[in-house]
Design a protein around this nucleic acid. Structure first.
Length: 308
DNA sequence: ACTGCGTCCTGGGGGC
DNA sequence: TGCCCCCAGGACGCAG
């Protein structure tokens, strides 16, 4: 499933392939895939027709495409199986046969002069919407890939992510994040997954970061020292950056493609999905626990359990 | 403020 | 070979 590195790969691909493109028309093949758009799917299509893409930005797992001369932007969330496929002129965009030939195609945006942007999503947790933008409270750029100090209203409550320069290690933003982390009364893993604290960390990378930092998922966040919290955040950032390096080169130039099923980032995983396999650091068996209605994978030796 | 849990959704894969 | 059921996940919303 796409996590932050995969989403960044998609954003980068969009920045390379669709900036300057004009959307001639949009076709919604499944209404559920256009959500949180006031006015619904038909209005979405009406509003999008004629829009020209100006930039591709990202905050956490949300992507947005800036539209020339407009205050609203096209927001995309990939959910857990979403893909954005960019088709060139030779694909035969707009033809009914071509639409039917694409498995799990939910929304097609046909481009002026040929080609298309396809939103493909097997499990339909992802969605598209148009959203007005609002100024960022700190006056800094809204996310990765834009210089504008604005963010879609739809995701204004989502915090910046660890790949955002504004919360980079050593910045005031990072310092503030550590302080907020320390002030929370809940567990470290819940903190890592709290998109309003720091965004972009999902279940997989939370477990990977905790393993790397040798912290048990259920440990109280406030129990960690600030340097330890800093280390944990650095670990989360490092895991995501190394995944990004691996994934960034694995889609071809015609497609902006994240394949939720191929799992091409999986080879670098140390704990996630490795129940009963030996820890890469100490050889003890990796355990799996239910936590927050999700699976958590951890090493019982490296990540000592809090007694409570 | 925090916690726990349900909801959305689909088809791959395991079990029989 | 077939069929049923479970499972995975992010974000959000609600009750306690």
């Amino acid at each position: 499933m796409p996590e932050l590195p995969e989403v960044e790969t998609v954003r980068d691909g969009l920045a390379r392939h669709v900036i300057g493109a004009q959307i001639a028309s949009a076709q919604v093949l499944r209404d559920y895939s256009v959500r949180r758009h006031e006015g619904g799917p038909q209005d979405f299509c009406d509003q999008l027709a004629g829009a020209t893409i100006e930039y591709a930005a990202r905050r956490g797992k949300f992507i947005w495409l800036g539209l020339a001369g407009r205050d609203d932007v096209l927001v995309a969330h990939l959910g857990m199986s979403g893909q954005i496929l960019v088709r060139d002129e030779s694909f035969g965009a707009g033809e009914a046969s071509a639409v039917q030939g694409v498995r799990h195609l939910r929304v097609r945006m046909s481009l002026t002069g040929g080609g298309a942007i396809d939103f493909v999503d097997q499990r339909t947790f992802g969605y598209l919407a148009l959203s007005e933008t609002v100024p960022t409270p700190d006056g800094l750029p809204g996310g990765v890939g834009t210089e504008l100090a604005r963010v879609p209203q739809l995701l204004a409550h989502i915090s910046r992510d660890l790949l955002d320069p504004a919360v980079g290690a050593g910045t005031l933003g990072r310092k503030e994040l550590i302080a907020r982390f320390k002030a929370k009364k809940t567990s470290v893993k819940r903190n890592l997954l709290d998109q309003e604290l720091v965004s972009g960390v999902g279940n997989i990378y939370a477990d990977e970061a905790l393993w790397l930092a040798k912290v048990h998922f259920a440990r109280a966040g406030a129990q960690l020292t600030k340097p330890k919290i800093a280390e944990l955040l650095d670990c989360a950032e490092a895991v995501m950056r190394s995944s990004l390096e691996q994934g960034g080169t694995s889609f071809d130039s015609l497609y902006v493609n994240v394949n939720g099923e191929s799992g091409y980032f999986n080879r670098s995983l140390n704990v996630y999905g490795r129940e009963d396999e030996p820890c890469h650091r100490c050889g003890a068996l990796i355990r799996r626990s239910e936590f927050m209605n999700r699976s958590s994978f951890w090493c019982s030796v490296c990540q000592s359990k809090p007694r409570n």
